[in-house]
Amino acid sequence: MSLHELGWKPFFQQQLTLDEWDDAIPARVVEQHRSVIVIQTEDERLSLPVLPDMTGITVGDWLLINRENRFSRLLDRQSLFSRKAAGGKVNSQCIAANVDTVFIVSSMNHDFNLNRIERFLALVHEAGAEPVVVLTKADLCEDPQSYLQQVRSMDAMLMVEPVNALDTHSVKALDSWCSMGKTIAFLGSSGVGKSTLVNTLLHRQSQTTGNIREDDSKGRHTTTARSLHPMSSGSLLLDTPGMRELQLADCEQGVEETFADIQRLTQQCQFSDCQHNGEPGCAIEQAIDDGQLEPRRLNNYRKLMREQAMNAATLAEKRARDKSLSRLYQSVQNESRRRKKG
């Protein structure tokens, strides 16, 4: 594969020095496992162990290796999707890098959830990528248009495509986002049909799929590693595992862009510090009374803003503690060196 086919752009080329052009080899991370990453150069595919100086590298990243196939450095990212790590940790976890378009996958059944779609939209907007909502299982849905209308009610300009993930002709609706060198990522909960959609787009059985539990329409989680796959169209398809504990952190701009309608209404309130809770001249409450804004959407906006603010605060506190500890360790090391010299 050429660098262009791998998604190489002027943004990455401009980061290389003249010496690096002579001595270093650009490579893209095409698979990410717990202790190993798989990289692709123009000439070959290699596996590299994840060493301490490679912390945070994720699928989609561009890095440089030397002539001995050893890691040199990570290039700056054009886009980065991250989340607060699952569980009680306060670390930020990278999900995917250098993505052009994100297919936000949701199934048209009991698992359909507008709040969850808005959460994914906030992540995509924060990273600056293009979101496309893909509604799967159209063949099993009696009224697909009702689901499309619900999604489009959030944003009339939002791209929404209903598909039958098993039907090659149906998924051709996504071709316009799958051109040469473009990187496409997937976000969505387990069981919504991501792996099935990946297999259909790639025309091969790349991902294992699981059965659906009939009692709640939820699926068994089947994808275990993040991976990047070349498509016949020339684009690169990135599949990520279902993220059942997705939390937002440092994502205020993404949330505000996702809820741009609420942001516009807020500017029309009589008071700049309006809390939208009984104040006179509140444009938000008026929009709800007029049926122009759903209470659900306002409640989810408030919830996501609180969540990202809380997680951002804990991450900032952790960074401050780490910085303080680093200064302490450096001070101890310097004092130890001074005493040895004495």
Rank of each mutant, 00 (worst) to 15 (best):
L123I: 14
L123D: 04
V124M: 06
H125R: 08
E126W: 08
E126T: 10
A127E: 00
A127I: 05
G128L: 09
A129Y: 08
A129F: 06
E130F: 08
P131E: 09
V133H: 07
V133Y: 00
V134G: 05
L135K: 04
K137T: 11
D139S: 14
D139C: 12
L140P: 05
C141D: 10
E142F: 07
D143I: 12
P144A: 04
Y147P: 02
Q150N: 09
Q150K: 14
V151A: 03
R152S: 02
R152C: 00
S153H: 13
M154K: 01
A156M: 15
M157Y: 08
L158P: 07
L166F: 07
L166I: 06
L166D: 04
D167P: 05
D167L: 09
T168F: 08
S170H: 09
V171E: 01
A173M: 11
A173V: 09
L174C: 05
L174G: 01
D175Q: 15
D175L: 08
D175A: 15
S176E: 12
C178H: 08
S179Q: 06
M180F: 10
K182A: 14
T183V: 13
I184T: 03
F186D: 00
G188T: 05
G188L: 01
G188N: 05
S189F: 00
S189Q: 09
S190D: 05
G191I: 05
G191K: 03
V192F: 01
V192R: 00
G193N: 07
T196V: 08
T196Q: 06
L197P: 01
V198W: 02
N199L: 04
N199T: 06
T200P: 06
L201P: 00
L201W: 00
Q205R: 14
S206L: 04
S206W: 00
S206R: 04
S206G: 07
S206D: 02
Q207I: 01
T208I: 08
N211Q: 15
N211T: 15
I212P: 01
R213G: 06
D215A: 15
G219V: 04
G219C: 11
G219T: 09
G219S: 08
H221E: 14
T223H: 03
T224Y: 11
T224N: 15
A225W: 01
A225N: 09
R226P: 04
P230E: 10
M231W: 11
M231T: 14
S232H: 12
G234R: 10
G234A: 11
S235L: 02
L236K: 01
D239P: 07
D239Q: 06
P241K: 06
G242C: 04
L246A: 09
Q247L: 10
Q247W: 02
Q247D: 12
Q247N: 14
L248D: 08
L248C: 13
A249F: 02
A249W: 03
D250E: 14
C251W: 04
